[in-house]
Structure formats: C-alpha cells, structure tokens
Design a protein around this nucleic acid. Structure first.
Lengths: 239, 239
DNA sequence: CCAAAAGTGTTGCGCCTACACCCATGC
DNA sequence: GCATGGGTGTAGGCGCAACACTTTTGG
C-alpha cells in the first residue's frame, strides 16, 4: 500500500455476505433468501449486500441483517468476520470482493423477506439446497468456524435466549457439532468455567413437557473458555 | 448480493497487507518497509499493495511478497488470511479496503527493498516502531492469530528450514508465545503427534557450538494437531 | 574435568470419560 | 407406577507438568 498513482490500481465492488445461524428445536438452522433475479434466479443464497461508501464491513453486515430480517438490535447478537472471498469469477456478472460474516441468533423470529429477495426463510442446515455463487463454500466455512468458536469461547450463549437451561445450551453444542455429549460432564464443565453462565433468578422451567423443571441461567461476563471445551475426536485418539 | 442496479453500489480500492513473520536467533521478526511518500512518509509499514483486476487476494499476496522480498516460490511458505480491515478513514487519502494476510517464512534472507518503498528490513517484533495506518493493529492481530495457530496446527514447521532440530522447533514456539517451555515435555508432545515431524536422513547437527549434536527432522504430512499443544495459561487455572 | 545441549525416566496431580444413581414432574 | 428430563456421585485412565538423570560433544 505504498503507491498512490491514480492509474496503478483498479476499483472493485465490495459486498458482505452473512451466514446467519440459529438453533431451533435442537437443529442448526441457517437464514437463506431466494433470489428474485438473474443470475441464479430462484436459487437460494446467503443474505447480504453492497458496502456503502461510509460504512465498515461490520456496519454493513448489521445493516443488511436488519434490512433482510427485521432484526435491528437483537440483544446478544454475535457477529464475527469469517473471511474474504475474492476469487475472480465467483460472480458471473462482475468482479465482486465479498467479506463474509457469521451471525449467531437466539431462537429465530421469522424473517420478513424484504428487499429484492423473493423470500427469506430459516432452513435446517442439513436440508439446505445448493446455493448460488460460492455461498455453499461460505456456509460450510461458517459452520466449521462456529464449531471451533464453541470450543474456545462463550459464543454458544449467543444462540440462547436471555434465560436458558443447561439442557438448551447443550443442544446448541450438539446441533453445531453434530455429536452427542454426556450431560453430566457437560454441566460440570460449564459450571466450572467462571463467567460462562450465571444463575438467573426466576422459577425453573419445563423443557420437554415432562421431567424435572430445569434451573435457569444467563450468559456470564467471560468471553473465552479456560480450559477449552473440546468436541469429541474427529478421529482416533493421539496414541 | 441480490441487486445489480448499476447505481446501487460504490466501488472501492482493495489492497492486501502482509504480516510476514520469521524466527531469527530465537526472536520473532517481522518484515517492514519504510514508506517513501506521503502519507506517513518515513514511517514503517507492512508490505502490501493493490489488488489487480484478475487476481484473488491470495494471488496478490504471493505476488507482493515476491516483489518486495524477492522470495518467489519459497518451499514451505505458509500464507493465511487474517481478516479484512474496512473502517472508513483508515487511509487518510481515500477509501481503501484491505485484506490482511499472515505469512510465515523459514530463516530469513535479507529482503531487497524493491518497489516504491525506501527500504525493506527484518525488525524484531518487540522493537518494532509505531507503524503507518492501522498496521500496528494488523500486526498485533497477526501475532495473536499465529500464536493460536501454533496450538492447533503444524504451522510452526513453516518457520523452520527443510531440516531442523527439535530445539529449533521449540524456539519457534517460545518466540511466538513469549514464554519458555519444558524441553522434555515438548519433545514428547511433538513426537507423539503422528505426522507432525518425521526423522530426516543425515548427520546430526550442532546448534550452539557446544553440546550433543541434535537429530534432524523434517515437516510431516499432518496439518492439524490432535491433541492440541496448548500454550501456558494466560491466567490462573480454571479452578 | 567442566559447560552446554540433547535425550530419557519417573512421579504425582488433575481433568475428563464413562457410567450408575437419586430427584421431580406429567401422564 | 412409569417415562422423561434434571441433577449428583464416583472409579479408572490418560495427559501433562515438574522435576532428576544420562549422554555426547567442545573447550
């Protein structure tokens, strides 16, 4: 970034793309929009849009999220930059550099399919159709990134409402990681990590209609987990 | 990214910035260039440059690295995207969106200060002067990211020559993390991780002039570390 | 012989896995 | 009572930190 010769560089369209995730009834869901125009008309895609002249990518991501879902200032919205996708040809019409974000939401209000999208909807991650552009790649990168975040940060609480049970928190981990966890060990890990969750006032709540009502917790002040909460081995043990 | 109205979006200059790191005599070093022109003339900055019309950010990063250091195709070059910096006003002249990368190199050939930079030089990370633009922030982010990568990936070998000793590999960890490690435990961890390092043919090598010659190793095929090699606690234990 | 660096052994603590077992509630 | 989900206890194992110790080289 040393040269400023006006003829030494090209200009690019810059967009943000959002992988908006939530957990609904124990399953990971992603917010998708159906495209109303070419290219990829009728195909599903990640929400997103063009960067405006005076906003950062983070600001644009929040604006687009509000525009496309009506969720302006959700408390506990967890927005994180994923990575930037810049391959030439990723958009057949023109050169577009896209900054992708992950966004984690508590249980999902139905989106109002605003803007130029035909409709917007929550779809189960595992039942997502092929996506337009390279959005399938972005979505897969997002799931992997969020899965890793759950190991080392308190991001899981971003999927939960203000007051939640430990069973609901465990469902978040299981939905994102796609594996089951031992309930007893999970609750010990969570409660042993200072600042992860704090007891919330209020009566216990029934979760499945049956069973013992569960105590309620709210997100604590910590952001990182020490020690980490590692997901079950992707493959065999080290030995 | 639904709308294609020609008037609905603005165009931006896009650059890549590189945090090029190496370990030299046990200390983390960063490649910096001295700016030859305004703004920030005379200040040090990260190498980088504008994205060309037909290349991805990754391609541009490799090209800039070759142009500014003469290191075209270093074997074992480890290039990774860091994040994108897009705040308005980060460049006083114009709106610039910059995709930042980390680059890890084995022991460092002196750079040829090419291009429009006054000079290019390796400087110790801890003795780096204040940098131009937001490059100080980018560099700090890069060090944190690389430190985290060492815990979970085999990236440390990217700092080492083709054949290296376990002592040299340990110096990489200590330089990046800024802490000392137990030699016995370190070698056990490394050797117990399949695919991290493999014995290399060839005689042992003396490292400090004295002492027992050390066996040589080369990088293995693995990319991720299971289990991770965690750095010493930033703070107290969980209990 | 001494210093320095590589390499090996060993012990103890802590975390974590894997269950087994009680508690409370709706049907 | 029984099914369902919340909450607690416990025994074994694996990993790891913190040493002590041996080996091999140069001076």
């Amino acid at each position: 970034m040393q040269g400023y010769d006006k003829h030494a560089y090209e200009l690019f369209a810059v967009t943000v793309d959002l992988a908006v995730l939530t957990v609904r009834e124990g399953a990971l869901h992603v917010l998708l929009v159906e495209r109303g125009q070419q290219p990829y008309a009728g195909r599903w895609a990640l929400p997103g849009g063009f960067l405006l002249p005076d906003e950062s990518a983070e600001t644009a991501a929040r604006r687009e999220l509000a525009e496309e879902t009506g969720l302006g200032d959700v408390t506990g919205l967890h927005l994180g930059q994923l990575r930037t996708y810049s391959e030439p040809g990723r958009d057949p019409r023109m050169r577009v550099v896209s900054v992708a974000f992950t966004a984690l939401l508590p249980d999902a209000p139905e989106p109002r399919g605003g803007g130029d999208a035909a409709q917007a909807r929550w779809l189960p991650y595992d039942a997502a159709p092929p996506l337009a552009f390279d959005h399938g790649l972005i979505l897969a990168d997002a799931r992997e990134r969020v899965g890793a975040q759950l190991e080392h940060t308190c991001a899981a609480t971003a999927f939960c409402p203000a007051a939640f049970t430990l069973g609901e928190l465990q469902q978040v981990y299981e939905a994102v990681w796609g594996s089951t966890l031992d309930r007893a060990n999970f609750r010990r890990k969570v409660l042993a990590t200072p600042g992860f969750v704090e007891p919330a006032a209020g009566a216990a709540r029934l979760t499945g209609g049956r069973g013992k009502p569960a105590a309620l917790y709210r997100a604590g002040g910590a952001t990182t987990l020490h020690p980490p909460l590692l997901r079950p081995s992707r493959e065999g043990r080290s030995a």
